[in-house]
């Protein structure tokens, strides 16, 4: 399975990418929503996108809305990665079309559990 990790923090991208690769994902990274759309428009359409909320150029909410307006990307699952201070805005992100969210700081287990619920654990991680 493939996952796109969008976050303006390089450290956060590394953490999320590391967790997903540990679960058997093939990953790509983008520094903000617009870069994320560039990856998708380039034809690399993953099963999962993990997207930060607060980013320059294009934030997570705008990214979710843009993705949901393209039917070709309907099968993609979007997980918002958000911080405690933004957490009461989560429902807006979900209403725009995100499927799940995790609140920073999170553990690898927290991500794994959410992906298990969504049926998005690569085979080797299920076993």
């Amino acid at each position: 399975m493939r996952a796109l990790v969008i976050d303006d923090s390089r450290a956060m991208r590394r953490i999320v990418t590391g967790i997903l690769e540990g679960l058997g994902y093939e990953t790509q990274q983008a520094g903000h929503g617009r870069e994320g759309l560039d990856v998708l428009e380039g034809g690399w359409v993953p099963e999962l996108v993990c997207v930060d909320w607060n980013m320059p150029v294009m934030d997570g909410l705008q990214f979710v809305s843009a993705v949901r307006s393209n039917p070709a990307w309907r099968a993609m699952t979007i997980m918002m990665v958000t911080s405690e201070s933004e957490h009461t805005q989560i429902v807006r992100a979900l209403a725009a079309g995100a499927h799940e969210y995790v609140i920073k700081p999170f553990t690898a287990d927290a991500i794994r559990d959410k992906l298990a619920l969504l049926g998005l654990l690569p085979q080797e991680a299920v076993l």
């Binding site: 957490h87 009461t88 989560i90 429902v91 807006r92 979900l94 969210y101």
Partner: peptide, 10 residues
């Protein structure tokens, strides 16, 4: 109002 926690919704 939105509620965010073990259950998340409005």
């Amino acid at each position: 109002v939105d509620v965010v926690g073990p259950w998340t919704g409005s």
